[in-house]
Design a protein around this nucleic acid. Structure first.
Lengths: 239, 239
DNA sequence: CGCATTCGGTATTTCGAAATTTCCACGCCC
DNA sequence: GGGCGTGGAAATTTCGAAATACCGAATGCG
């Protein structure tokens, strides 16, 4: 029997018809490792090391890295290899500005176009986040579960905007902002107040109040962005 | 001696003064072939054919195709290969909406933040387009030169927005819209009035009139979009 | 006769190594 | 002493083939 070989189509539910090529697996792992900071910004991504780390050949690695170029998480210099996209205060400001504008715009469309299934989704996502935020102590480090619930909330809000392009942009820019947040703000206590913010935004959105929901979301993003930007400039403050 | 570096490979590429891997060459050719319609929407991209067409191995091809995924010009189904991203009326509407919003927003920033070098660029790009538009007959098919001048004009306008992310998004969405335009409107006559539009928009932008420049650009995009959408729905009319 | 299964052909995906290119330090000439 | 070519060494890039997975036709069974 060979190595642990998963990709055969056994052992998955019918709905999970997704096939896993090695490249797609490595793509997810790489993206997660970059966004989480496990691979440091600016770090050179040598094939020799990546082959060891992920246990695959150069072809799937190259494929995954190329796809991450489009998400602006890695950069490629011709004949000089790949590296993790660097971070900078200028880029952070650009990311914040873009996320603010796009997500607020998408929220406006979503509130206008949202139907009943959307409202159910928003309620569920809001409750789920509140539950997680309440259960966890303030000082507990942010984990994958929190990340998923948090992301799920934000995309539930704008899920009814009916624009795949806008959603795709928001997704990409969310990942980029998330990387800064996870680099600069490793502890959940800095996210205090998020649960209340989320409840207020969802309330206004569910009530159909475009202006108010947009205003609250803008304020929420501004608050988080301020913390991230401050800690990015002065990382020593986070202990 | 170091100024012009000759990659020691066959001098097939002429206009490129930078370093070139085969993958980057194929990337450009593939993107151009897809946007120009030479590779039809929805068409399956088999490696056997692409290897023949572009004269490279599977590795550079796969790399180029993966990068085009991020530009939404090709799609990848795991274990089932690549294909040219399909077109649809819904997607066209989404592309138009996104381009309209993003480009108008970028223009507003650009007019506010534009400096003298920017004004010079805008004047040059506007004049260049007028010259090309005047020199060519209305019925002449759109060629690469016209495409470049036209694209150059639009990006000169928003070039001072000082947001690389916004610029990158505009670039990506411009390519996607361009594909629809070149599929639906193969003859330049349908672009009549473009030169005057461009002059008016540039005039308002150079005068610092944010509102007016945005209004004119919106109208310009709407006009073109209407033609493209109409011809996309009824391609027989363009003969 | 309908349906699930198998089997051969074809395409994708992956690997390992060869071909290029870049990097860097060393020696040489001015 | 400093600038400039030079020669390995290391890394990226590419190729060709092996491994794996999918598609469609033929077969067996209910």
């Amino acid at each position: 029997m060979n190595d642990l070989r998963v990709p055969s189509m056994v052992g998955r539910s019918v709905a999970d018809a997704q096939v896993h090529s090695k490249a797609s697996v490595v793509l997810r792992r790489l993206r997660n490792d970059i966004v989480s900071g496990s691979l440091a910004p600016g770090q050179k991504l040598q094939f020799r090391l990546l082959v060891q780390r992920y246990g695959v050949g150069t072809s799937p690695l190259r494929e995954a890295l190329c796809q991450l170029i489009g998400e602006h998480l890695v950069s490629l210099q011709s004949q000089r290899g790949f590296s993790v996209q660097p971070v900078s205060a200028d880029d952070l400001a650009d990311v914040i500005s873009a996320r603010r504008h796009a997500e607020i715009y998408a929220l406006g469309l979503s509130v206008q176009r949202g139907d009943e299934p959307w409202r159910i989704q928003v309620r569920q996502a809001t409750d789920a986040f509140s539950a997680v935020a309440a259960k966890m102590g303030d000082q507990r480090p942010i984990d994958e579960h929190w990340e998923r619930i948090h992301r799920n909330y934000h995309f539930a809000l704008i899920g009814a905007c009916q624009s795949p392009i806008l959603l795709g942009f928001c997704k990409s820019i969310y990942h980029r902002f998330d990387r800064y947040r996870r680099i600069a703000v490793p502890v959940q206590s800095f996210m205090a107040g998020t649960a209340r913010d989320h409840r207020d935004i969802a309330g206004a959105a569910l009530a159909g109040d475009v202006e108010r929901s947009q205003h609250l979301l803008a304020q929420h993003i501004d608050d988080i962005a301020e913390v991230v930007a401050a800690n990015f400039a002065q990382p020593a403050l986070t202990r």
